[in-house]
Amino acid sequence: MILVVCEFDTKLKKSALEVLGAAQRLNDGITAVLLGAGASAVAPEAALYADQVLVCEDALLEGAKNMAQAVADLSEQAEANLVLISGSRGGREVAPRVAVRLNAPYLEDAIALEGIEGGLRIQHYAYLARVTETLEAVAPVVVATVKPNTQAVGSPKANAGDVYDVELELSPSGVKVLGRVVEKSSRVALTEASVVVTGGRGLGAPENFALIESLADVLGAGVGATRAAVDAGWRPYGEQVGQTGKTVQPNAYIAVGVSGAVQHLSGMGKSKNIVAINKDAEAPIFKVADYGIVGDLHAIMPALIEAAKKLKD
């Protein structure tokens, strides 16, 4: 039995559909778990992908510690031999705690999963995504996270699984949430865009990101930023690409005024095509670029926006 922890808001998040997809391909029974406020409303949708759905809306289901306790307890109840969780930031703060509670091996941020006798084999990236590792663990129960945007979403079945409300024995976690900021963008989600246009420190000033946004508008692209641009306060953190930001793998990644530091490459280096615009012919980004223009972005970008518009008209 595979226990799949599903992320949701008013419906299943794409991350949940991806983890359910990975679980379906492993070809075992699936118990979907929905934890927290609003879980019951999502249960009918989850039931289309699972043999059974466990739902709990306990108000104490907040914070990594209590989430992990809930998942570990339900894993034992469901006699799961595999617990799958999204490798989202939230998932990755809960999953290791589940593994510790179950004294189980933890396989992190899988890009590929394969069942083996008594366990699981995965592939994941290491060394700032410069290396692809194959790992395996054999144990009564294995905990794994699945890297977002690497798995095809699951397919709904004709027969929905059963939904059960479960009770948990939780105590207050001792963490109080003082405030939350959600950074919403009206654009196509960065991690789902087939073209991403990213601006770096080379833009020189926040208002020059208009060049990035105009090109993105013409191409229907997502907008990204380097850590340097985010740290300078030019762009919101949600746009950051790299080791401490998002990982993207679009068909075309267009980096403008970006030097190509290893920490940035680790978030976009697997893009199918990399395009760079930089005035420094020696910039490291050109070493990984398929196409590029060596020149001043203030001259190149307006021309590029015009050329792209002409193509689209």
Partner: peptide, 13 residues
């Protein structure tokens, strides 16, 4: 690694 010289921005773009 197809790099275009940007001296003429319009042609390069």
């Amino acid at each position: 690694n197809k790099l275009i010289d940007g001296k003429d921005p319009v042609a390069a773009a």
